[in-house]
Amino acid sequence: MGELVEFIVRSRNFILFLLLEVICFYFIINTNNYWSASFFNTSNAYAAQMLTWSNSVQAYTRLRDVNAELAAENRKLHEELTRLQQGHPVAPTAYQADTVFANRFAYKVAKVTNNTTQYANNYITIDKGTDDGIQPGMGVISPTGVVGRVKLCSANFSVVTSILHSEFRVSSKLIRAADIGTAKWDGVDPHQMKLLDISRYKPVYKGDSVVTSEHNSVFPPGILVGRVRTIGVQPNMTFHDITIDLSTNFSNLSFVYVVNNKLRQEQEQLEKQIENEK
């Protein structure tokens, strides 16, 4: 008996080693049993918490790629959306939009490389130019709303006239009031714009959405411009004095979509013929 105890004491490490290995292999073989499946794996609350935390840190390193992918995906969805909307407009049933008209808008993703908001006439530089099929006159929108219109193009860059420009006007529509006016920047606050030419006999509601109207060849209809902030009355005028909050925050503009209306030239050429008669 004494010898046995002495043997166990002497080789206790070997016995412990064997015991631990047996436990390990028991785990390996029974890895699907309930106890281990519910605790010793990454679904364990502590382990999962730790991995979530670690992933949230790692996610930052991948943001650049993720942003680019999302912008590309948005471009595709935008194109699809305008095609569907233009293919089935709110119109009498007799009206059929032909596919050329419905497909007239094409989108391209670009990244903003330079941007001002503090001047009276602001411009934005984007990293796509004529090599990517960008031409002066195309519209530019952001994920949150209207941005501007391409003014100049080089091979790899383009300068965009921001809607924060004293000469820029966007034909816009109030959704609830169903009236069309012109949005224009008054040069004061880069977060606000004026909406002109809305008749004072139309009821206008605070918070009503202002979107691009059908009456322009640059932007697809229905792109958000902003929301009504204040409604006043201009003295001696028949129009409302409306201030809108811009939906796009121009100070942190990152990815934008350049909109190419393939029928714009045709439309403008046709309209130019009656220009002189006006």
Binding site: I23, C24, F25, N41
Partner: peptide, 24 residues
């Protein structure tokens, strides 16, 4: 030392979803 190693292995296994392999 053996016990420390065992528990280290189990912790790593927990994160690799390979219970017992690293421990062994």
């Amino acid at each position: 030392f053996l016990l420390i190693s065992f528990f280290t292995g189990v912790i790593v296994d927990t994160f690799y979803n390979t219970l017992g392999m690293h421990a062994a």
